[in-house]
């Protein structure tokens, strides 16, 4: 290649014919297009057909799938279960993650700080299969550690059936999810706490502000955009999470812990009604879009305030 490349063509804004730069972004765009955009349209299409897992072709049936789903009591139940699962998991994760980050921020000695940090992020590294199985084992109703310990301490008379008692299963799953998700909140909140300029605290101290006031007027405004974004991402993740529930209870006992993703899986792969499963997953996505838009309106308002 000759030295035809001049400095001016290097600038991004020149608008000259510059094909090479497309080479850089093309493969990633192709991935997004084939693996994310196409499937979205494909699923939307299936949701209006009577497609099954085995059928080669499918007929257009209009809104029938949607009508069937919206009148299915199992769908309504799965939806409310998902709301409870997401809401309480998030509250718990934020509470534990946030207070953990604040406590960690107080520790000035480097060595204990690193030890705490590493210990506390371990749940985040857990593969979902290991989360499910280790908790299934610790909560096992015959020889599990936690029920056995409760009996030994005299707190309960019998082995508590955490994962098969209909009243306990959802709270138990939520606790597992808090255990898993709090570290991510903690690490990110801790990182953004570090970006708060220290001199503001000192100035506030001189002005006679107490710890609570500097927390409310310096810390919170400074980190709330990052925390807000984090909460959006966690909401989406928890809402869509399939693994933890599917692998511990598979939605049982008798559907008490069946969330939307598990419900959709059963429609598509147990009942083999792919069209109906598609419709349910589109509804799930729509709901998430609405929630996220609401979040982003709030975050955008915060960002404006900060400026």
């Amino acid at each position: 290649m000759s030295k035809s490349v001049t400095k001016s063509s290097f600038r991004p804004e020149t608008g000259k014919k510059d094909r090479v730069r497309w080479l850089f972004v093309m493969p990633a765009m192709l991935v997004v297009l084939c693996l994310l955009i196409y499937p979205l349209f494909s699923t939307s299409y299936y949701s209006f057909t009577d497609k099954t897992l085995i059928s080669q072709s499918a007929d257009f049936i209009g809104l029938e799938n949607y009508i069937n789903i919206l009148s299915d009591p199992d769908f309504i139940r799965a939806f409310t279960t998902t709301l409870k699962w997401t809401f309480f998991s998030l509250i718990g994760q934020i509470l534990v993650g946030f207070t953990g980050a604040l406590a960690l921020n107080k520790i000035k000695m480097a060595v204990p700080r690193t030890i705490y940090r590493i210990c506390m992020i371990i749940p985040w590294a857990f593969p979902s299969i290991a989360i499910a199985l280790v908790w299934d084992w610790m909560l096992n109703g015959i020889q599990g550690f936690i029920p056995a310990l409760l009996v030994q301490l005299g707190l309960t008379d019998n082995m508590v059936q955490f994962l098969s008692d209909p009243n306990l299963v959802l709270p138990t799953l939520i606790c597992i999810n808090i255990w898993f998700g709090a570290p991510m909140i903690m690490v990110n909140v801790y990182a953004s706490l570090q970006t708060v300029p220290q001199d503001q605290y000192e100035a506030a101290k001189i002005d006679g502000a107490n710890a609570l006031q500097s927390f409310a007027y310096i810390t919170i405004p400074h980190i709330k955009v990052v925390v807000g974004l984090l909460v959006v991402l966690r909401t989406i993740w928890v809402f869509n999470n399939f693994d933890i529930i599917f692998m511990t209870t598979a939605g049982g006992p008798s559907g008490v812990s069946r969330t939307m993703p598990v419900y959709i899986y059963e429609l598509g792969w147990t009942s083999r009604m792919v069209g109906r499963a598609s419709a349910a997953s589109i509804l799930l996505l729509l709901f998430l879009v609405i929630i996220s838009v609401l979040y982003f309106i709030v975050i955008a308002r915060w960002e404006k305030e900060g400026k």
Partner: peptide, 9 residues
């Protein structure tokens, strides 16, 4: 936001 259960279909 795309649920993996939606993409897998």
């Amino acid at each position: 936001m795309f649920p993996s259960i939606m993409l897998v279909i």
